[in-house]
Amino acid sequence: MSIHDTYVTFPCVRALLFLFNIVFWFCGLAIVWAGIWLHTDLQNYLKISPEYSTAPPMVLVTIGTIIILVATLACTCIVKVQQTLLVIYGGFLIVILFTVITVSAYIYTYKDNVIGGLAEGIQFDIDYYGIPGANKTKLIDYIQKNLECCGRESYMDWEESKHITAPESCCRAPLSECNVVDPYYLYTIGCMPKLQTLINNNLSLIGASASAIAMFPLFGTMLTFCLAATTRKHGYEPIIQ
């Protein structure tokens, strides 16, 4: 390869790698956002399952933060074309590739476990609703109000439990007009099918997004090692002259 050919190839590879690094930085930001969202808004629905865990959002936030920090630092070795740092960055991308694939599989497993525990969790919250120290009242009320549902399978679950009537969070009419004894005023659909759909759709989206992001570093790894090899073979100074 002539110096002229190298001059053409080198800037192209470096520009592509720099562009990749910017996109990779935003991928890290997206992973952090997914972790925060999973730990804030979505956790109000996940916590009703006994299989709920704070580990998945913490893992996502940690991985996303590491990606953001390393991608930021990597801009230096890309601009200055530091061969050793490029090789290290390429190795980091390979590690991230397998790490995010593992996290993606973990999210899918976590999703199945949470959904599998919904029936037990909802029934437990119904049975212990309003009991001092049980700390379950606000959770089931939040779910019933926001998902417009009542009970596990239907509002009848409340009548079959220790409660005579459904709580006010089951009312589909304003509280001033609602009669919790009359089914006409209550949500008739149970919370379990709605929770299953909500959790399955959202965690599947996070898992699928993680899988897509996991494939992305493979392209960056090839660019990184290609740039490092070009630098080692021809040297940086002759290329830019």
Rank of each mutant, 00 (worst) to 15 (best):
L17W: 05
P57D: 00
C12R: 15
Y52S: 06
L42P: 01
F219K: 01
A30C: 06
I164V: 08
S176R: 13
A210T: 02
K233D: 11
S209Y: 08
N201R: 15
I122G: 06
K233W: 10
L46F: 02
N21A: 00
S209Q: 07
I122H: 10
G133L: 10
L97Q: 06
I115V: 06
C171E: 02
T165S: 09
L205N: 08
C226M: 09
I48Q: 06
L223D: 00
V180E: 10
V103M: 09
F24W: 09
T221M: 14
M58A: 11
S209K: 07
A34T: 05
M192T: 11
I88E: 04
I107F: 10
M156A: 14
L223Q: 01
A55V: 13
A119L: 08
D127E: 15
Y129L: 12
S211Y: 07
T197H: 14
K162L: 13
Y108M: 10
S209C: 13
V114H: 09
A71N: 01
L203N: 07
A210G: 05
A30L: 06
D127F: 11
Y184I: 06
V81E: 15
L147G: 05
V114L: 11
L93C: 05
K194Q: 08
G91T: 04
I63W: 04
K145T: 05
C12A: 12
A30M: 03
V32I: 10
Y155T: 00
F98I: 01
T230Q: 15
A166G: 04
A74D: 05
V61I: 08
S104V: 03
A229Q: 08
V81Q: 11
V8M: 12
F24P: 02
G190V: 09
I67G: 00
E153W: 09
A74C: 05
D157Q: 12
N202W: 10
N146S: 09
G35N: 00
Q43R: 14
V81M: 07
W158A: 02
A229N: 11
K233R: 15
D141R: 04
V79N: 06
L205C: 07
K194M: 08
T188H: 15
G64L: 02
T165I: 08
Y185G: 03
N202E: 14
L175M: 07
R172T: 02
E160K: 15
T231C: 15
Y184G: 11
V32Q: 04
F24S: 03
W33P: 00
Y185K: 07
D141E: 09
I48H: 06
V100D: 04
E177M: 13
M1S: 15
I78S: 01
T40Q: 11
D157A: 02
I94Q: 04
V114A: 12
H4N: 13
E160P: 02
E120P: 02
V95S: 00
C27L: 01
G91N: 03
P183M: 06
Y184M: 07
I140D: 04
N201M: 14
A214P: 04
T65A: 14
P167C: 03
T62E: 00
E153G: 07
M1F: 12
P11S: 13
A166V: 05
T6L: 10
P217A: 05
D182N: 08
G90E: 06
T65V: 09
I36H: 08
C226W: 10
H234Y: 15
I94R: 03
L139R: 13
L93F: 07
I31H: 01
Q241S: 14
I3Y: 12
